[in-house]
């Protein structure tokens, strides 16, 4: 599904990603762990095509995609939700989802046909709104919506494209426990036709959702294994989970 070989990225003299290799199977839930500055978000930029790698190869669905720009990669079925909300601020929640749904359903360039009245687009908006629990607030303005709702929408825009691969960068950052629970359920309900790559700091969520976990530190892959293996690994505990034994919550 996704294969990364010997990927490196440096900014000037600073190496953010060093010789990183990853292999994610179709349908897999892969969680990326790592302390701040480990290069997790940079890795997502490289995968999505918003940054060019200094070295290395990226294969998606068997094809080398290193030369494709972000638009072409999105069209292959790669979607992304952002660590910092990256929404259409001046529009309503419904309009945000409509833009994503029209893009995925090929209605974005159509002249003289309003996607608002398109049955497929409408169905997609309703479906996603229900998934992210925003059915009641669809017509609210994004710029004045509370943070939690904006966070849900951030994930909703990415989900509305029905991607093959979904890159989620700290989807629960800054939200309260009830929304983390809701989000947890949402992840469990997503069909296995979507492969998930998640950067996550909530340990309960990460260990429960993940099939496999990759731990990054200073741009290198430190460890990779099942949640149980990860919990038991001494090196991971010392570097990522810190001194706290058990390390249940590490912000």
């Amino acid at each position: 599904m996704l294969e990364v070989k010997n990927l490196s990225k440096d900014f000037g003299g600073l190496q953010i990603i060093r010789d990183l290799s990853l292999k994610v199977e179709a349908g897999e839930r892969r969680v990326i762990l790592g302390p701040n500055g480990a290069g997790k978000t940079t890795l997502f930029h490289l995968l999505a095509g918003t940054l060019a790698p200094s070295q290395g190869e990226i294969r998606f669905d068997g094809a080398a995609i290193g030369a494709l720009n972000a638009v072409r990669r999105a069209r292959l079925g790669m979607a992304r939700s952002y660590q910092k909300n990256n929404l259409f601020e001046s529009l309503t929640i419904r309009e945000n989802l409509m833009l994503a749904a029209s893009a995925a359903l090929g209605k974005s360039g159509k002249l003289f046909r309003d996607p608002r009245h398109d049955a497929a687009v409408k169905a997609r908006i309703d479906e996603i709104a229900e998934q992210i629990a925003l059915t009641e607030t669809l017509d609210a303005q994004v710029s004045t919506a509370p943070y939690g709702i904006r966070r849900q929408l951030e994930v909703g825009i990415a989900l509305a494209t029905k991607p093959k691969l979904l890159l989620m960068d700290e989807p629960t950052s800054g939200v309260g426990p009830s929304m983390i629970d809701h989000f947890h359920r949402l992840l469990n309900q997503l069909p296995r036709s979507i492969t998930l790559l998640i950067i996550e700091h909530d340990m309960d969520l990460a260990f429960d959702v993940a099939d496999r976990i990759s731990v990054l530190n200073f741009g290198e892959k430190l460890f990779e294994g099942t949640p149980t293996e990860t919990k038991g690994n001494a090196m991971v505990r010392s570097i990522y989970l810190g001194e706290r034994e058990g390390g249940e919550h590490n912000a």
Binding site: V71, A104, L111
Partner: peptide, 26 residues
């Protein structure tokens, strides 16, 4: 008519957030 079409809606989307439109494959 153009502004209420898929094309026009995309144009408004670009105005609101061009980077996210590209991430949607536009």
């Amino acid at each position: 008519l153009l502004l209420r079409s898929g094309f026009g809606r995309s144009l408004s989307g670009i105005h609101a957030n061009e980077g996210r439109m590209q991430a949607l494959g536009i």
